[in-house]
Design a binder for these strands. Structure first.
Length: 659
RNA sequence: UGGGGAUUAGUGUAACGGUAGCACGACUGACUCUGGAUCAGUUAGUCCAGGUUCGAAUCCUGGAUCCCCAGCCA
């Protein structure tokens, strides 16, 4: 999605995918007079996920590239499934992603949002017209009977006994349906097309059903509600959408989409002369393949059940592929946009490796996230020859990728926390970190040489000892000697205890539907070698939850972070050096003192590189000399929670894993 | 012969009758005050069988496999 913040040169915003080729062709032939108007039409019955992000980036991106317009429209034709909570989350998510819809304003989140339900009146008029043209009829058949008469994939259907009612009777009945005279399910308005059509969607599809329910937008104004097929094309038509882009499963619906609009246009003229008036706009529906991602599920139904059955903590759980979940996890909108740009658009059903998303997240955060030192699994390191009460505030670089990010001070003292895995009493080959006799660098501080360790009764290492070389202050040896390893650390006396939440894939398998192991076992139990897919009523789909990763969330409390993050705003993103990217979760207390910083709510505008403002806050300036006693920063108390967005690449972990 | 759609390295995506390329992943190596980042390199592909052509991923014929459709959901 091109925005002023993106760094793509004009023209290389996206590849020439098949949709852009179609649009180019339309522009060549003048089909829409050079206009490009797109829309994103979610049904407010769930939270948006990264698959929707693909669609949003596509639709908004096309409008932006071709100098067209982009609408955000709630496709709210079913009052029984739709809720205000979903409406609000959808609007917030689209905004956060960075799409700008027609009529969007910053002071009113709902400004410019369109509603399919606002067109119900016009659609009703067209339904009347369909009846008058002999193209629609009121059918009294209950749902099961309609289903029976529809036929099968290979056998034609049979006509409803009500198919040949007179226009007058149909008009009367439909009006009485609207008046609320009939209970739910007793009557429908159906299109009169072809009960033997090879495309099942064309076998007299239902246009309206009776639902006595309060609609979130229209209240109790209606008790007949249009079906998707009847409504969607008209919503597009009314808004002047040129390219109605949807997913592959709607390909079978395109003939109906076109049929309904052509039906209305039957008898109409370009100049409006004649009994029916002027022709209505006919958009082009184009279908593309929805996004699938490894190690996760994407359907609304499944996401809903994860929430309802409490496998996750909510729609915005950082393990969810929802936009809200990704945002809370710390994924920046720029990364999502870049991801959507890279995966492209095609008609091939595919599953994208989640590693690509993670790559895009790292790529962006590497450029903008301030660095900080944090110890997740602490081990005490005592520098025996360092003065007991001495504290030095050392200079640390905020972001080596961005010199403008400046530096900060970090406190160094005699007793530190280092990472437990950064010490080994007996090092394996290629291990360059701390072990007895080995010298390493403490980042921005000193070279230290390990002298030994202390163990508890069970033989666990509980404390490591070392001596430092005072000539290496800042991290460079004047004699030019090298060390193989640089380690992060935190001063025990100054460390900020925080909660850290480590996330892993939600599922243990790339394809959560892959229950082959279980199926084989079940087959063996049943004594049948072929009992796999049919083993359960729903097939493998019923068992996908058996692949949930029991270790998808690991909570560390406390972990210890350098004091500079004390006043980090909610949502601020950091790199914990050598660990990964982390962001301040909204479960944290508000910052102790925030000079106009956004105190609550999700990270605000797209791309605001949250976080840097916090660096340095609470650190005594120029206090480089020894300062006995606790520094000022420890005076404040704040409960901080960090989410790990994504790990850094870790080649050592790879080496270890291979052993 | 129900209809519709799709098949290019492990994954995603280009090439539109003329050298099968890019990205991610994996693997080497260089460099490094993050075993990060960066840089260099390696790996590996046109679903199958015929045909047309000087030349086919691309055109033709036949086949295979996968996905979607029998909601008064969208």
């Amino acid at each position: 999605m091109p925005t002023p913040n993106d760094q793509h040169a004009p023209g290389e915003t996206a590849a020439r995918d098949f949709i852009r080729e179609i649009i180019d062709e339309h522009n060549r032939t003048g089909r829409f007079g050079g206009r490009v108007c797109t829309r994103f039409p979610p049904e407010p019955n769930g939270y948006l996920h990264i698959g929707h992000a693909k669609s949003i980036c596509l639709n908004y991106g096309l409008a932006a590239e071709y100098g067209g317009t982009f609408n955000l429209r709630m496709d709210d034709t079913n009052p029984e499934k739709e809720e205000q909570e979903y409406v609000d989350s959808i609007i917030a998510d689209v905004r956060w992603l960075g799409a700008r819809w027609v009529g969007m304003r910053d002071d009113d989140p709902h400004a410019g949002v369109l509603w399919g339900s606002d067109y119900f009146g016009q659609m009703y008029e067209w339904a009347l017209e369909a009846i008058k043209k002999g193209r629609a009829y009121v059918c009294d058949l209950p749902a099961e009977e309609v289903s029976k008469l529809r036929g099968t994939l290979t056998a034609p259907g049979r006509p409803s006994p009500y198919r040949d009612r007179s226009v007058a009777e149909n008009l009367d009945l439909f009006e009485r349906m609207r008046q609320g005279e009939f209970p739910d399910g007793t009557k429908t308005l159906r299109a009169k097309i072809d009960m033997a059509h090879p495309n099942l969607n064309m076998r007299d599809p239902v246009m309206y059903r009776i639902i006595h329910a309060t609609h979130h937008n229209t209240g109790d104004q209606w008790c007949v509600y249009p079906m998707y097929d009847w409504a969607h094309g008209f919503e597009d038509s009314i808004e002047g959408i040129t390219h109605s882009i949807c997913t592959l499963e709607f390909e079978n619906h395109r003939p109906l989409y076109d049929w309904f609009i052509d039906m209305v246009n039957e008898g109409r003229t370009d100049d409006g002369s004649g009994p029916w008036g002027k022709k209505i706009h006919h958009p082009q529906q184009i279908e593309f393949a929805r996004l699938n991602l490894t190690y996760t599920v994407m359907s609304k139904r499944r996401l809903l059940s994860l929430v309802k059955e409490a496998h996750v903590r909510g729609w915005d759980d950082p393990r969810m592929p929802t936009i809200a979940g990704l945002r809370r996890r710390g994924v920046p909108p720029e990364a999502i946009r870049e991801f959507c740009r890279r995966i492209g658009v095609s008609k091939v059903e595919s599953t994208v490796d989640i590693a690509l998303l993670e790559h895009c997240v790292r790529e962006h955060l590497n450029k903008v996230a301030p660095r900080v030192m944090g110890v997740l699994r602490p081990l005490k390191l005592v520098i025996d020859n360092y003065p007991e009460d001495q504290v030095e505030w050392l200079d640390a670089i905020n972001n080596p990728e961005d010199p403008a990010a400046g530096t900060r001070k970090v406190p160094f003292s005699r007793v530190l926390y280092i990472e437990h895995e950064d010490f080994r009493e007996t090092p394996p080959p290629k291990y360059w970190r701390l072990y007895p006799g080995n010298e390493v660098r403490l980042r921005y501080a000193y070279f230290v040489k390990c002298t030994g360790c202390v163990k508890d009764a069970a033989g666990n290492v509980v404390e490591v000892h070392a001596t430092y070389d005072s000539a290496t202050r800042g991290g460079d040896a004047p004699d030019g000697r090298k060390v193989k390893s640089t380690m992060h650390w935190v001063s025990v006396a100054h460390a900020l205890p925080v909660e850290v939440r480590l996330y892993d894939h939600l599922f243990t398998k790339p394809d959560p539907d892959d229950v082959s192991d279980d199926a084989l076992r079940a087959a063996a139990d049943a004594g049948s070698p072929l009992a796999s897919r049919e083993a359960s009523a729903e097939g493998p789909a019923a068992d996908w939850k058996s692949n949930l990763n029991p270790h998808s969330l690991e909570v560390i409390n406390p972990a210890y972070v350098e004091p500079s993050v004390l006043n980090a705003p909610l949502g601020a993103r950091y790199q914990f050096e050598r660990h990964g990217y982390f962001c301040v979760d909204e479960d944290s207390d508000a910052p102790l003192s925030e000079p106009g910083a956004p105190a609550t709510g999700p990270v605000t505008a797209a791309g605001s590189p949250a976080g840097l403002g916090a660096a340095g806050v609470g650190v005594p300036p120029d206090n480089v000399a020894s300062t006995p006693g606790p520094p000022a920063v420890v005076g404040g108390r704040r409960s901080l929670v960090f989410n790990r967005t994504v790990t850094l690449k870790d080649t050592w972990a790879k080496i270890e894993k291979k052993r």
